[in-house]
Design a protein around this nucleic acid. Sequence first.
DNA 1: TATGAATGAGCCTTCATTCAT
DNA 2: CATGAATGAAGGCTCATTCAT
Lengths: 218, 218, 218, 218
Amino acid sequence: MPTEEVPPAVRATGTRIDPRSQGGIRTRAAIVEAARVILARDGFRDARICDIAREAGVANGSFYTYFASKAEVVSALLPEIEEDLLDPTAGPEVKGAPDIASRIEAMIRAYLDNYQRNARLLKVLEEVTLAEKTVAEWRLERSREFARRAAVDITGWQGRGLVDQELDPVVTARSLSSMVVRMAYFVYAVGDTIAYEDLVANLSRLWVNALRLPVNAA
Amino acid sequence: MPTEEVPPAVRATGTRIDPRSQGGIRTRAAIVEAARVILARDGFRDARICDIAREAGVANGSFYTYFASKAEVVSALLPEIEEDLLDPTAGPEVKGAPDIASRIEAMIRAYLDNYQRNARLLKVLEEVTLAEKTVAEWRLERSREFARRAAVDITGWQGRGLVDQELDPVVTARSLSSMVVRMAYFVYAVGDTIAYEDLVANLSRLWVNALRLPVNAA
Amino acid sequence: MPTEEVPPAVRATGTRIDPRSQGGIRTRAAIVEAARVILARDGFRDARICDIAREAGVANGSFYTYFASKAEVVSALLPEIEEDLLDPTAGPEVKGAPDIASRIEAMIRAYLDNYQRNARLLKVLEEVTLAEKTVAEWRLERSREFARRAAVDITGWQGRGLVDQELDPVVTARSLSSMVVRMAYFVYAVGDTIAYEDLVANLSRLWVNALRLPVNAA
Amino acid sequence: MPTEEVPPAVRATGTRIDPRSQGGIRTRAAIVEAARVILARDGFRDARICDIAREAGVANGSFYTYFASKAEVVSALLPEIEEDLLDPTAGPEVKGAPDIASRIEAMIRAYLDNYQRNARLLKVLEEVTLAEKTVAEWRLERSREFARRAAVDITGWQGRGLVDQELDPVVTARSLSSMVVRMAYFVYAVGDTIAYEDLVANLSRLWVNALRLPVNAA
DNA sequence: TATGAATGAGCCTTCATTCAT
DNA sequence: CATGAATGAAGGCTCATTCAT
């Protein structure tokens, strides 16, 4: 038990470097990529630092040159996941849809497709969210941001009399998104079996109904 | 180590007793109750067998007289959680509501209240679901069962022309439930801040809208 | 990096057992004895827990059943060293001396002899004192206690007009003891070479002179 | 790992440069100064090479351009400490004292003052002495040298009949110095509390008494 | 000479699980 | 059935040291 005034944790080797050299950048990237692979394979809890290091082709200690913990390397992975998750909304299919209902369907479809592609990693994200407050907060912020943007649309539609005026745009956006997220989680992460087209059709219709959108509103 | 690859050597000896003596029953119950306390306090990952044993006031080894692992004691906790979760649906407020919309609101209210009361444990449930296939399956089954029951209602309403005919009753029930579950999770487990009444009002209206229920249908 | 409110250190497995069973007592004793051997051999810094465990003939983890750290096992060793150190003062040779000067010489002789016997361990003690505040405090307290007792003698002698009235009994006791301790350290721990009898003769004479004790005062 | 058993593989490459360029000299000096700061802050064991390097504003590897180990940089610090420690003896107050007793008191005062100023570093010195044979030897040599010089005085005084003829000048010098050193260590490094003036007065009187110096001998 | 990332041996520590009493 | 000490595999993490640039 350390008796010194300054507890070790304070002096901790917490200072991880921000690579300056070319090699450093490459190594860091290799570790992040390896983490993606190992985390997808083993999940957060069962992923071992040494496996990530080996997968990255670096020494055990090199992991700690760039990250202080497993949680931290996940944080580094987050922005990539973020891009993945946000792209759908802005994808060409969504924008090109002729009416709002079609856009909603395209968005749901894009979300589910993306979830399916990244199911392993998104399950890990779920796991880390539970374990790491910082990640939970990041994720909450992302959700809110996403909801805020969706809320802008909803508010616009409300202004045009297309959507139930009594709904709170932000809570509605969060709720309907949650519905999609959760169903994607059940189907792709937990293993529920629902036919893809049934799922898309129902979720889309539930969105449209829930908003009270006229069928062909554009 | 991924759940599905546990080498035999590590796997617990398996044969756990089903207590016959009075003392045995009491001991087992003490352990289950202690597990509830410790899991709520520390979460699944951080809960230690020895802490549970101490909390139960029994020796370390006694845990293994009744359970082969942490996951197993959680399984023993499951029925209690199940009751908690299912009670709401059948609560007097739900049954006594004058119309369907009120019943839905009462149900959502009951669910949220219950979630709030058991937030810690439900967060653990989330955690274990991620970690333990058996629990994930149990939970999936519970969700389906719940959805099946809700689907019966929906189907009935569809038969009476009260609800959108195009919705698949089962997928719809699962989706709308997921929406509530997820929002409860965000608000009570992750820490999002949404005013309770706003949440209830919106979720209720989204349910009703999504089903296309006429306002005063009973 | 743990994100939980309660830092791990607080929930730490700090609770080490106080052995209840016969076997437990024996094991603990074996570890303490092994620690004595290994510490004497390697010093505090270089002593490894695993070496102590092996020397004790127990598993690595068993060390932690009884002690939370190397420092803690040293603390367990302390009382034994204490006895060693205090015995001299009360030894038969000291008590049986015909006059005060002889008693002082006997005491110094006893102290040096004891130091020589335990040189390795006392060097370790020196090391731990520097590294562990708790041990430093324990040692300081021991020194003071020792000085307090010596001060009683000095005060008595002052009362009888045998000793320089201007000396502060406590500071004097501490200073003269320090002189002996330090010389013992130099000769037996650091490796200085001074003939034993020269050392005893000089230290004794310095004590007597310093106190201004008449040669044959009894 | 005990100092004397360092396996060749672990031993540093050895050949360190003796800087010829201006820059080299400055870099080396920066490292030494940084070592002084970090060692004073963290102690020998807890001081890390990388911290010293950072403090010096040089790269990690640059440390090894000039020093093969932590112990070696301490050796480089030694001469500075030496100066600090020896200066007192030669300080103006000591030389200017009217009689021997006053000189002794001035010397003790100077020593304590200096110890207080450098307490942190002197504690480190204590630590390194325990850990590094070479430093222990250096220090022993310094002590002897100091004692030798003091012994010259004592011998002189004996020749003039001012001092107890039975004392061995060298052992006496070492012993009385040890007394002062140890008390300084206790008060300034370990944290004992003795009023400064009491300490000075007692130590001075003990010196004078121990030598049997007539009060006003000059 | 300076740089700073890479290395990896090595020690610490935990805790699920067993088993003799 | 209860006890509680013993076990030891497993992984985390550090940091002195090297070496290519």
